[in-house]
Design a binder for these strands. Structure first.
Length: 491
RNA sequence: CGGGGUAUAGCGCAGUCCGGUUAGCGCAUCUGGUUUGGGACCAGAGGGCCGCAGGUUCGAAUCCUGCUACCCCGACCA
Protein backbone atom coordinates (compact mmCIF):
# COMPACT_ATOMS: atom_id res chain seq x y z
CA UNK A 1 0.00 0.00 0.00
CA UNK A 2 0.99 3.58 -0.66
CA UNK A 3 4.13 2.48 -2.33
CA UNK A 4 4.46 5.91 -3.87
CA UNK A 5 4.78 7.79 -0.60
CA UNK A 6 7.90 8.14 1.49
CA UNK A 7 7.35 6.44 4.84
CA UNK A 8 6.28 8.96 7.45
CA UNK A 9 8.33 7.42 10.24
CA UNK A 10 11.48 7.28 8.13
CA UNK A 11 11.53 10.81 6.81
CA UNK A 12 8.75 13.07 7.98
CA UNK A 13 9.55 16.10 5.86
CA UNK A 14 9.99 14.04 2.70
CA UNK A 15 6.70 12.32 3.49
CA UNK A 16 5.07 15.74 3.68
CA UNK A 17 6.60 16.90 0.40
CA UNK A 18 5.56 13.68 -1.35
CA UNK A 19 2.06 13.87 0.02
CA UNK A 20 1.45 17.42 -1.16
CA UNK A 21 2.53 16.44 -4.68
CA UNK A 22 0.98 12.97 -4.89
CA UNK A 23 -2.35 14.00 -3.43
CA UNK A 24 -2.46 16.66 -6.12
CA UNK A 25 -2.65 19.58 -3.72
CA UNK A 26 0.10 21.82 -5.05
CA UNK A 27 3.35 21.93 -6.93
CA UNK A 28 6.31 24.21 -7.33
CA UNK A 29 6.07 26.74 -10.10
CA UNK A 30 8.53 28.30 -12.49
CA UNK A 31 8.82 31.20 -10.05
CA UNK A 32 11.14 30.72 -7.12
CA UNK A 33 9.30 30.17 -3.88
CA UNK A 34 5.86 30.45 -5.44
CA UNK A 35 3.55 27.48 -5.67
CA UNK A 36 0.77 26.43 -7.96
CA UNK A 37 -2.20 25.37 -5.86
CA UNK A 38 -3.87 22.64 -7.86
CA UNK A 39 -7.64 22.22 -8.11
CA UNK A 40 -7.93 19.62 -5.34
CA UNK A 41 -5.75 21.64 -2.99
CA UNK A 42 -7.62 24.79 -3.86
CA UNK A 43 -10.94 23.05 -3.22
CA UNK A 44 -9.82 22.40 0.35
CA UNK A 45 -8.74 26.03 0.70
CA UNK A 46 -12.15 27.10 -0.60
CA UNK A 47 -13.78 24.99 2.11
CA UNK A 48 -11.57 26.69 4.70
CA UNK A 49 -12.43 30.09 3.26
CA UNK A 50 -16.14 29.36 3.15
CA UNK A 51 -16.38 28.34 6.79
CA UNK A 52 -14.16 31.11 8.10
CA UNK A 53 -15.95 33.70 6.01
CA UNK A 54 -19.26 32.61 7.54
CA UNK A 55 -17.78 33.03 11.00
CA UNK A 56 -16.41 36.48 10.17
CA UNK A 57 -19.77 37.62 8.86
CA UNK A 58 -21.49 36.14 11.88
CA UNK A 59 -19.29 38.28 14.13
CA UNK A 60 -20.20 41.44 12.25
CA UNK A 61 -17.36 41.73 9.77
CA UNK A 62 -17.56 42.69 6.10
CA UNK A 63 -15.18 42.00 3.24
CA UNK A 64 -13.36 44.64 1.22
CA UNK A 65 -10.27 44.82 -0.94
CA UNK A 66 -7.17 47.00 -0.72
CA UNK A 67 -4.30 47.38 -3.23
CA UNK A 68 -1.56 44.88 -3.82
CA UNK A 69 0.99 47.72 -3.95
CA UNK A 70 1.96 49.97 -1.11
CA UNK A 71 3.99 53.18 -1.53
CA UNK A 72 7.38 52.71 0.03
CA UNK A 73 7.01 55.77 2.25
CA UNK A 74 4.04 54.20 4.06
CA UNK A 75 6.29 51.59 5.55
CA UNK A 76 8.59 53.98 7.33
CA UNK A 77 5.70 55.49 9.27
CA UNK A 78 5.65 52.80 11.92
CA UNK A 79 9.19 52.09 13.06
CA UNK A 80 8.99 48.53 14.33
CA UNK A 81 6.72 47.56 11.43
CA UNK A 82 9.37 48.50 8.82
CA UNK A 83 12.03 46.75 10.80
CA UNK A 84 9.98 43.56 10.91
CA UNK A 85 9.29 43.37 7.20
CA UNK A 86 12.11 45.28 5.50
CA UNK A 87 14.22 42.21 4.81
CA UNK A 88 11.55 40.34 2.89
CA UNK A 89 9.85 42.88 0.65
CA UNK A 90 9.47 42.66 -3.11
CA UNK A 91 9.85 46.13 -4.63
CA UNK A 92 8.40 47.44 -7.88
CA UNK A 93 10.71 50.01 -9.43
CA UNK A 94 9.54 50.29 -13.06
CA UNK A 95 6.29 50.27 -14.96
CA UNK A 96 7.29 49.42 -18.53
CA UNK A 97 9.25 46.98 -20.65
CA UNK A 98 10.67 47.53 -24.09
CA UNK A 99 12.25 45.45 -26.81
CA UNK A 100 15.90 44.79 -26.32
CA UNK A 101 17.91 46.72 -28.93
CA UNK A 102 19.82 43.54 -29.79
CA UNK A 103 16.54 42.23 -31.17
CA UNK A 104 15.61 39.31 -28.95
CA UNK A 105 13.66 39.54 -25.75
CA UNK A 106 12.53 42.44 -23.61
CA UNK A 107 14.29 44.61 -21.05
CA UNK A 108 13.10 46.93 -18.32
CA UNK A 109 12.77 50.38 -19.80
CA UNK A 110 15.24 52.49 -17.81
CA UNK A 111 13.20 55.59 -18.59
CA UNK A 112 10.14 54.11 -16.93
CA UNK A 113 11.35 54.32 -13.36
CA UNK A 114 8.66 54.96 -10.75
CA UNK A 115 9.03 58.19 -8.83
CA UNK A 116 8.11 56.38 -5.67
CA UNK A 117 8.80 52.68 -5.54
CA UNK A 118 5.96 50.36 -4.64
CA UNK A 119 6.16 47.50 -2.18
CA UNK A 120 4.23 44.34 -2.90
CA UNK A 121 2.22 44.00 0.31
CA UNK A 122 3.68 41.66 2.91
CA UNK A 123 0.64 42.66 5.01
CA UNK A 124 -1.75 45.58 4.64
CA UNK A 125 -1.78 47.57 7.89
CA UNK A 126 -0.13 50.61 6.34
CA UNK A 127 -2.29 51.01 3.25
CA UNK A 128 -5.39 50.27 5.28
CA UNK A 129 -4.66 52.75 8.03
CA UNK A 130 -3.79 55.35 5.44
CA UNK A 131 -7.28 54.69 4.05
CA UNK A 132 -9.04 54.56 7.42
CA UNK A 133 -7.82 58.08 8.07
CA UNK A 134 -10.35 59.22 5.47
CA UNK A 135 -13.12 57.02 6.80
CA UNK A 136 -13.01 58.03 10.43
CA UNK A 137 -13.91 61.38 11.94
CA UNK A 138 -16.27 60.59 14.78
CA UNK A 139 -16.99 57.83 17.24
CA UNK A 140 -20.12 57.36 15.10
CA UNK A 141 -17.86 56.01 12.33
CA UNK A 142 -16.60 53.28 14.62
CA UNK A 143 -16.10 50.44 14.85
CA UNK A 144 -14.84 49.49 11.40
CA UNK A 145 -14.81 45.71 11.05
CA UNK A 146 -13.24 44.84 7.72
CA UNK A 147 -11.66 41.69 6.41
CA UNK A 148 -9.94 41.06 3.12
CA UNK A 149 -9.09 37.82 1.32
CA UNK A 150 -5.86 38.43 -0.54
CA UNK A 151 -2.44 37.29 -1.55
CA UNK A 152 0.69 38.67 0.09
CA UNK A 153 4.38 38.37 -0.68
CA UNK A 154 7.20 37.81 1.75
CA UNK A 155 10.51 37.10 0.07
CA UNK A 156 11.46 33.99 1.99
CA UNK A 157 14.88 32.41 1.72
CA UNK A 158 13.73 28.87 2.15
CA UNK A 159 10.31 27.78 1.10
CA UNK A 160 8.12 24.73 1.49
CA UNK A 161 4.79 24.09 -0.16
CA UNK A 162 2.02 25.65 1.96
CA UNK A 163 4.19 26.01 5.05
CA UNK A 164 6.32 28.86 3.80
CA UNK A 165 6.03 30.27 0.31
CA UNK A 166 7.09 33.64 -1.09
CA UNK A 167 3.52 34.35 -2.13
CA UNK A 168 0.66 33.01 -0.09
CA UNK A 169 -3.08 33.42 0.24
CA UNK A 170 -4.66 34.57 3.44
CA UNK A 171 -7.28 36.71 5.04
CA UNK A 172 -6.44 39.75 7.09
CA UNK A 173 -8.96 41.42 9.33
CA UNK A 174 -8.34 45.08 10.19
CA UNK A 175 -10.56 46.70 12.72
CA UNK A 176 -10.79 50.17 14.22
CA UNK A 177 -12.31 50.93 17.61
CA UNK A 178 -13.12 53.84 19.89
CA UNK A 179 -11.73 52.28 23.03
CA UNK A 180 -8.83 50.17 24.11
CA UNK A 181 -11.16 47.69 25.80
CA UNK A 182 -13.19 47.17 22.66
CA UNK A 183 -10.09 46.53 20.54
CA UNK A 184 -8.65 44.11 23.06
CA UNK A 185 -11.98 42.31 23.15
CA UNK A 186 -12.02 42.13 19.34
CA UNK A 187 -8.53 40.62 19.20
CA UNK A 188 -9.57 37.99 21.72
CA UNK A 189 -12.86 37.33 19.99
CA UNK A 190 -11.14 36.61 16.67
CA UNK A 191 -8.58 34.37 18.29
CA UNK A 192 -11.51 32.39 19.65
CA UNK A 193 -13.02 32.22 16.18
CA UNK A 194 -9.77 30.73 14.93
CA UNK A 195 -9.53 28.30 17.82
CA UNK A 196 -13.09 27.19 17.26
CA UNK A 197 -12.44 26.71 13.57
CA UNK A 198 -9.21 24.78 14.14
CA UNK A 199 -10.89 22.46 16.64
CA UNK A 200 -14.30 21.95 15.12
CA UNK A 201 -13.52 22.02 11.41
CA UNK A 202 -9.86 21.09 11.08
CA UNK A 203 -10.02 18.68 14.04
CA UNK A 204 -6.84 20.21 15.40
CA UNK A 205 -6.78 21.06 19.10
CA UNK A 206 -4.92 24.30 19.77
CA UNK A 207 -3.38 26.17 22.67
CA UNK A 208 -4.47 29.79 22.93
CA UNK A 209 -2.17 32.34 24.39
CA UNK A 210 -0.06 35.47 24.16
CA UNK A 211 3.19 35.70 22.26
CA UNK A 212 6.35 36.75 24.02
CA UNK A 213 7.92 40.08 23.05
CA UNK A 214 10.38 38.31 20.75
CA UNK A 215 7.64 36.60 18.78
CA UNK A 216 5.29 39.58 18.67
CA UNK A 217 4.07 41.01 15.36
CA UNK A 218 5.99 44.04 14.12
CA UNK A 219 3.91 46.99 15.25
CA UNK A 220 1.65 45.20 17.71
CA UNK A 221 1.24 45.87 21.38
CA UNK A 222 0.10 42.32 21.98
CA UNK A 223 0.04 39.29 19.71
CA UNK A 224 -2.29 36.41 20.46
CA UNK A 225 -1.92 33.07 18.73
CA UNK A 226 -3.15 29.53 18.55
CA UNK A 227 -0.50 26.83 18.43
CA UNK A 228 -1.01 23.33 17.10
CA UNK A 229 1.18 20.26 17.48
CA UNK A 230 2.15 18.36 14.34
CA UNK A 231 2.78 14.60 14.23
CA UNK A 232 6.54 15.06 14.17
CA UNK A 233 6.43 16.93 17.47
CA UNK A 234 6.91 20.40 16.02
CA UNK A 235 4.60 23.29 16.74
CA UNK A 236 2.78 25.24 14.09
CA UNK A 237 1.22 28.63 14.59
CA UNK A 238 -2.23 28.24 13.14
CA UNK A 239 -3.58 31.77 13.51
CA UNK A 240 -2.69 35.12 14.99
CA UNK A 241 -4.63 38.08 16.28
CA UNK A 242 -2.97 41.35 17.16
CA UNK A 243 -3.94 44.17 19.47
CA UNK A 244 -2.22 47.07 17.73
CA UNK A 245 -2.97 49.71 20.36
CA UNK A 246 -2.85 53.17 18.82
CA UNK A 247 0.41 52.54 16.97
CA UNK A 248 -0.97 52.65 13.46
CA UNK A 249 -3.48 55.38 14.26
CA UNK A 250 -0.60 57.52 15.44
CA UNK A 251 1.60 56.61 12.49
CA UNK A 252 -1.16 57.55 10.04
CA UNK A 253 -2.76 60.25 12.13
CA UNK A 254 -6.15 58.61 12.45
CA UNK A 255 -8.05 60.57 15.11
CA UNK A 256 -11.70 60.74 15.94
CA UNK A 257 -13.91 62.93 18.07
CA UNK A 258 -15.21 60.93 21.01
CA UNK A 259 -18.50 61.37 22.86
CA UNK A 260 -16.97 64.01 25.09
CA UNK A 261 -16.01 66.02 22.01
CA UNK A 262 -12.30 65.35 22.47
CA UNK A 263 -9.89 64.14 19.81
CA UNK A 264 -8.36 60.71 20.39
CA UNK A 265 -6.42 58.17 18.37
CA UNK A 266 -8.25 55.10 17.13
CA UNK A 267 -7.57 51.65 18.58
CA UNK A 268 -6.75 48.85 16.20
CA UNK A 269 -6.57 45.10 15.72
CA UNK A 270 -5.50 42.85 12.89
CA UNK A 271 -5.82 39.10 12.57
CA UNK A 272 -5.10 36.49 9.96
CA UNK A 273 -4.78 32.91 8.85
CA UNK A 274 -3.09 31.75 5.68
CA UNK A 275 -2.71 28.84 3.29
CA UNK A 276 -0.32 27.60 5.93
CA UNK A 277 -3.43 26.06 7.48
CA UNK A 278 -3.28 23.62 4.58
CA UNK A 279 0.08 22.49 5.86
CA UNK A 280 -1.34 22.09 9.35
CA UNK A 281 -4.27 20.09 8.04
CA UNK A 282 -1.99 17.76 6.12
CA UNK A 283 0.54 17.26 8.89
CA UNK A 284 -1.89 16.88 11.75
CA UNK A 285 -3.82 13.84 10.56
CA UNK A 286 -2.38 12.14 7.51
CA UNK A 287 -0.69 8.74 7.41
CA UNK A 288 1.37 6.47 5.18
CA UNK A 289 -1.61 5.87 2.91
CA UNK A 290 -2.02 9.56 2.24
CA UNK A 291 -4.18 12.43 3.35
CA UNK A 292 -6.77 12.12 6.06
CA UNK A 293 -9.25 14.95 5.68
CA UNK A 294 -11.73 15.99 8.36
CA UNK A 295 -15.23 15.50 6.92
CA UNK A 296 -16.25 19.13 7.42
CA UNK A 297 -13.45 20.34 5.14
CA UNK A 298 -13.27 17.49 2.64
CA UNK A 299 -14.23 18.67 -0.86
CA UNK A 300 -15.57 15.16 -1.47
CA UNK A 301 -17.02 13.53 1.63
CA UNK A 302 -18.21 10.32 0.04
CA UNK A 303 -16.97 8.59 -3.07
CA UNK A 304 -18.87 5.74 -4.72
CA UNK A 305 -16.88 3.16 -6.69
CA UNK A 306 -18.64 0.58 -8.85
CA UNK A 307 -17.24 -2.93 -9.22
CA UNK A 308 -18.51 -4.69 -12.30
CA UNK A 309 -17.99 -6.98 -15.23
CA UNK A 310 -19.67 -5.82 -18.39
CA UNK A 311 -22.24 -3.17 -19.13
CA UNK A 312 -25.21 -5.06 -17.71
CA UNK A 313 -23.74 -5.05 -14.25
CA UNK A 314 -22.57 -1.47 -14.55
CA UNK A 315 -26.05 -0.31 -15.46
CA UNK A 316 -27.64 -1.93 -12.42
CA UNK A 317 -24.90 -0.67 -10.16
CA UNK A 318 -25.08 2.84 -11.59
CA UNK A 319 -28.79 2.99 -10.98
CA UNK A 320 -28.27 2.30 -7.30
CA UNK A 321 -25.16 4.48 -7.11
CA UNK A 322 -26.88 7.51 -8.61
CA UNK A 323 -29.86 7.05 -6.31
CA UNK A 324 -27.54 6.90 -3.30
CA UNK A 325 -25.61 9.90 -4.54
CA UNK A 326 -28.70 12.02 -4.82
CA UNK A 327 -30.06 10.83 -1.45
CA UNK A 328 -26.76 11.58 0.23
CA UNK A 329 -26.61 14.99 -1.40
CA UNK A 330 -30.12 15.74 -0.25
CA UNK A 331 -28.92 14.96 3.27
CA UNK A 332 -26.25 17.63 2.87
CA UNK A 333 -23.24 15.53 1.89
CA UNK A 334 -20.88 16.06 -1.04
CA UNK A 335 -20.62 12.92 -3.13
CA UNK A 336 -18.69 11.78 -6.17
CA UNK A 337 -19.63 8.76 -8.25
CA UNK A 338 -16.51 7.55 -10.01
CA UNK A 339 -17.73 5.35 -12.86
CA UNK A 340 -14.64 5.83 -15.04
CA UNK A 341 -13.99 2.65 -16.96
CA UNK A 342 -10.36 3.54 -17.46
CA UNK A 343 -9.25 2.61 -13.95
CA UNK A 344 -9.73 -0.52 -11.92
CA UNK A 345 -11.46 -0.42 -8.54
CA UNK A 346 -8.24 -1.18 -6.70
CA UNK A 347 -6.59 1.82 -8.26
CA UNK A 348 -9.50 4.04 -7.29
CA UNK A 349 -9.46 2.77 -3.70
CA UNK A 350 -5.82 3.64 -3.33
CA UNK A 351 -6.25 6.97 -5.08
CA UNK A 352 -9.11 8.19 -2.89
CA UNK A 353 -7.21 7.07 0.19
CA UNK A 354 -4.26 9.12 -0.99
CA UNK A 355 -6.60 12.06 -1.38
CA UNK A 356 -8.14 11.61 2.05
CA UNK A 357 -11.79 11.18 1.06
CA UNK A 358 -13.44 10.30 4.42
CA UNK A 359 -15.91 7.65 3.23
CA UNK A 360 -15.88 5.26 0.30
CA UNK A 361 -18.80 3.20 -0.85
CA UNK A 362 -18.10 0.21 -3.09
CA UNK A 363 -20.97 -1.45 -4.93
CA UNK A 364 -20.52 -4.75 -6.78
CA UNK A 365 -22.78 -7.48 -8.13
CA UNK A 366 -22.74 -9.28 -4.77
CA UNK A 367 -24.10 -6.14 -3.12
CA UNK A 368 -26.86 -5.79 -5.68
CA UNK A 369 -27.90 -9.38 -5.00
CA UNK A 370 -27.80 -9.01 -1.24
CA UNK A 371 -29.14 -5.47 -1.00
CA UNK A 372 -25.98 -4.13 0.60
CA UNK A 373 -23.05 -1.83 -0.04
CA UNK A 374 -19.53 -1.85 1.31
CA UNK A 375 -18.64 1.22 3.35
CA UNK A 376 -15.00 2.02 4.12
CA UNK A 377 -13.73 4.82 6.33
CA UNK A 378 -10.45 6.58 5.64
CA UNK A 379 -9.42 7.40 9.20
CA UNK A 380 -9.33 3.80 10.45
CA UNK A 381 -9.09 2.05 7.06
CA UNK A 382 -11.85 -0.33 8.13
CA UNK A 383 -14.74 -1.64 6.03
CA UNK A 384 -18.21 -2.88 6.80
CA UNK A 385 -21.19 -4.14 4.84
CA UNK A 386 -24.34 -2.10 5.27
CA UNK A 387 -27.93 -2.77 4.20
CA UNK A 388 -28.76 -0.40 1.38
CA UNK A 389 -31.85 0.97 3.14
CA UNK A 390 -29.75 2.04 6.13
CA UNK A 391 -26.89 3.55 4.25
CA UNK A 392 -27.89 7.22 4.25
CA UNK A 393 -28.38 7.42 8.00
CA UNK A 394 -25.35 5.26 8.56
CA UNK A 395 -23.05 7.51 6.55
CA UNK A 396 -24.39 10.67 8.09
CA UNK A 397 -23.46 9.26 11.48
CA UNK A 398 -20.24 7.86 10.16
CA UNK A 399 -19.03 11.29 9.04
CA UNK A 400 -19.68 12.54 12.56
CA UNK A 401 -17.80 9.55 13.99
CA UNK A 402 -14.87 10.18 11.73
CA UNK A 403 -14.82 13.83 12.71
CA UNK A 404 -14.83 12.94 16.39
CA UNK A 405 -12.27 10.21 15.96
CA UNK A 406 -9.81 12.43 14.11
CA UNK A 407 -10.18 15.17 16.68
CA UNK A 408 -9.88 12.65 19.51
CA UNK A 409 -6.76 11.15 18.01
CA UNK A 410 -5.11 14.53 17.59
CA UNK A 411 -6.09 15.51 21.12
CA UNK A 412 -4.67 12.31 22.58
CA UNK A 413 -1.51 12.76 20.58
CA UNK A 414 -1.06 16.25 21.92
CA UNK A 415 -1.72 15.12 25.48
CA UNK A 416 0.86 12.34 25.16
CA UNK A 417 3.38 14.77 23.73
CA UNK A 418 2.99 17.59 26.20
CA UNK A 419 5.58 17.51 28.97
CA UNK A 420 5.98 19.36 32.23
CA UNK A 421 9.50 19.74 33.50
CA UNK A 422 11.55 21.82 35.92
CA UNK A 423 14.85 20.28 34.99
CA UNK A 424 17.05 21.87 32.33
CA UNK A 425 18.71 18.62 31.22
CA UNK A 426 15.36 16.94 30.88
CA UNK A 427 14.06 19.96 28.97
CA UNK A 428 16.91 19.68 26.48
CA UNK A 429 16.41 15.95 26.17
CA UNK A 430 12.72 16.30 25.41
CA UNK A 431 13.27 19.05 22.84
CA UNK A 432 16.15 17.21 21.22
CA UNK A 433 14.92 13.62 21.26
CA UNK A 434 11.17 13.46 21.74
CA UNK A 435 9.73 16.71 20.41
CA UNK A 436 6.36 17.99 21.48
CA UNK A 437 5.13 20.76 23.74
CA UNK A 438 7.08 21.50 26.90
CA UNK A 439 5.47 23.46 29.69
CA UNK A 440 8.22 25.06 31.71
CA UNK A 441 8.94 28.06 33.87
CA UNK A 442 10.54 31.14 32.36
CA UNK A 443 11.81 34.28 34.01
CA UNK A 444 9.98 36.50 31.53
CA UNK A 445 13.03 38.11 29.95
CA UNK A 446 13.60 38.23 26.18
CA UNK A 447 17.29 37.51 26.80
CA UNK A 448 16.53 34.19 28.46
CA UNK A 449 14.16 33.21 25.67
CA UNK A 450 16.88 34.05 23.16
CA UNK A 451 19.40 32.01 25.11
CA UNK A 452 17.11 28.99 25.22
CA UNK A 453 16.45 29.38 21.51
CA UNK A 454 20.17 29.47 20.73
CA UNK A 455 20.84 26.43 22.84
CA UNK A 456 17.88 24.23 21.91
CA UNK A 457 16.15 25.81 18.85
CA UNK A 458 13.00 25.83 20.97
CA UNK A 459 11.00 29.03 21.31
CA UNK A 460 8.13 30.14 23.47
CA UNK A 461 5.15 29.36 21.31
CA UNK A 462 2.66 31.03 23.60
CA UNK A 463 2.12 32.05 27.16
CA UNK A 464 -1.11 30.05 27.48
CA UNK A 465 -4.23 31.82 28.73
CA UNK A 466 -5.16 28.85 30.86
CA UNK A 467 -1.74 28.36 32.40
CA UNK A 468 -2.46 28.70 36.10
CA UNK A 469 -0.43 30.95 38.41
CA UNK A 470 2.28 28.78 39.87
CA UNK A 471 5.41 29.93 41.66
CA UNK A 472 8.49 28.38 40.13
CA UNK A 473 12.01 28.91 38.94
CA UNK A 474 13.04 29.63 35.37
CA UNK A 475 14.11 26.43 33.63
CA UNK A 476 17.27 28.09 32.36
CA UNK A 477 18.27 30.85 34.80
CA UNK A 478 16.59 29.74 38.02
CA UNK A 479 15.13 33.18 38.49
CA UNK A 480 11.59 33.43 39.82
CA UNK A 481 8.66 32.71 37.48
CA UNK A 482 4.93 33.11 37.96
CA UNK A 483 3.64 30.56 35.50
CA UNK A 484 4.63 27.96 32.96
CA UNK A 485 4.89 28.85 29.28
CA UNK A 486 4.73 26.66 26.21
CA UNK A 487 8.05 25.80 24.58
CA UNK A 488 8.56 23.87 21.34
CA UNK A 489 10.50 23.75 18.15
CA UNK A 490 8.32 25.31 15.51
CA UNK A 491 7.63 25.43 11.81
C1' C B 1 21.92 34.74 2.24
C1' G B 2 26.18 30.87 3.42
C1' G B 3 27.59 25.36 2.72
C1' G B 4 26.45 20.79 -0.03
C1' G B 5 23.75 18.23 -3.92
C1' U B 6 20.74 17.79 -8.35
C1' A B 7 18.87 19.20 -13.50
C1' U B 8 18.69 13.67 -19.60
C1' A B 9 10.76 11.76 -22.53
C1' G B 10 4.95 13.41 -18.31
C1' C B 11 7.46 10.98 -13.62
C1' G B 12 11.80 8.18 -11.54
C1' C B 13 16.65 7.15 -13.23
C1' A B 14 21.35 5.16 -16.22
C1' G B 15 24.91 7.25 -19.51
C1' U B 16 28.98 12.39 -17.95
C1' C B 17 34.96 10.50 -14.82
C1' C B 18 37.89 9.02 -20.07
C1' G B 19 33.99 13.79 -26.00
C1' G B 20 32.99 9.75 -31.27
C1' U B 21 27.24 4.71 -34.26
C1' U B 22 20.65 6.11 -34.34
C1' A B 23 20.94 8.73 -26.17
C1' G B 24 18.89 4.06 -23.10
C1' C B 25 15.79 1.65 -18.95
C1' G B 26 11.33 1.40 -15.59
C1' C B 27 6.64 3.64 -14.78
C1' A B 28 3.10 6.59 -17.29
C1' U B 29 0.80 7.66 -22.38
C1' C B 30 -1.62 5.85 -27.15
C1' U B 31 -3.79 1.44 -30.16
C1' G B 32 -5.91 -3.58 -30.09
C1' G B 33 -7.47 -7.58 -27.14
C1' U B 34 -8.37 -10.06 -22.49
C1' U B 35 -9.77 -8.08 -17.60
C1' U B 36 -12.52 -5.48 -13.18
C1' G B 37 -14.48 -7.26 -4.74
C1' G B 38 -7.35 -3.59 -3.15
C1' G B 39 -2.68 0.06 -7.40
C1' A B 40 -4.44 -5.74 -14.08
C1' C B 41 -2.10 -8.63 -18.25
C1' C B 42 -0.33 -9.55 -23.38
C1' A B 43 1.15 -7.47 -28.04
C1' G B 44 2.45 -3.21 -30.66
C1' A B 45 3.33 2.24 -31.12
C1' G B 46 4.52 7.30 -30.11
C1' G B 47 7.32 10.56 -27.25
C1' G B 48 14.08 14.07 -26.36
C1' C B 49 17.08 21.36 -28.71
C1' C B 50 20.17 16.05 -22.61
C1' G B 51 17.63 23.06 -17.47
C1' C B 52 19.04 27.96 -20.15
C1' A B 53 23.00 31.04 -22.54
C1' G B 54 27.82 31.35 -24.23
C1' G B 55 32.65 28.99 -25.22
C1' U B 56 36.50 24.91 -26.55
C1' U B 57 36.52 21.09 -30.55
C1' C B 58 36.37 18.14 -36.99
C1' G B 59 32.65 16.47 -33.39
C1' A B 60 29.66 18.09 -26.82
C1' A B 61 24.40 15.11 -22.67
C1' U B 62 29.80 14.39 -21.69
C1' C B 63 35.04 19.53 -21.14
C1' C B 64 35.04 25.20 -19.59
C1' U B 65 32.30 29.89 -18.01
C1' G B 66 27.91 32.30 -16.58
C1' C B 67 22.75 32.03 -15.29
C1' U B 68 18.15 29.77 -13.47
C1' A B 69 15.29 26.32 -10.73
C1' C B 70 14.67 22.45 -7.20
C1' C B 71 16.30 19.37 -2.80
C1' C B 72 19.15 18.90 2.01
C1' C B 73 21.75 21.55 6.16
C1' G B 74 22.37 26.44 8.66
C1' A B 75 20.82 31.97 9.58
C1' C B 76 15.64 34.61 9.02
C1' C B 77 10.32 34.21 9.09
C1' A B 78 3.35 32.93 9.28
Amino acid sequence: MAKFLTNREENYSQWYNDLVIKADLAENSAVRGCMVIKPYGYAIWERIQAELDKKFKATGHVNAYFPLFIPKSFFSREASHVEGFAKECAVVTHYRLKNDHTGKGVIVDPEARLEEELIVRPTSETIIWNTYKNWIQSYRDLPILVNQWANVVRWEMRTRLFLRTAEFLWQEGHTAHATREEAVEEAEKMLNVYADFATNYMCIPVIKGRKSVNERFAGAEETLAIEALMQDGKALQAGTSHFLGQNFAKAFDVQFTNQEGKLDYVWATSWGVSTRLMGALIMAHSDNNGLVLPPRLAPIQVVIVPIYKGNDQLEKISELALKLKSDLENSGMTVKYDDRDTHKPGFKFADYELKGVPVRIAIGPRDIEQGTVEVARRDTLTKETIKTENVIAHIKNLLEDIHNNILQKATTFRKENTYYTDNWDEFRDIIENKGGFVMAHWDGSPETEELIKDETKATIRVIPFDSPDEEGKCIRTGRPSERRVLFARAY
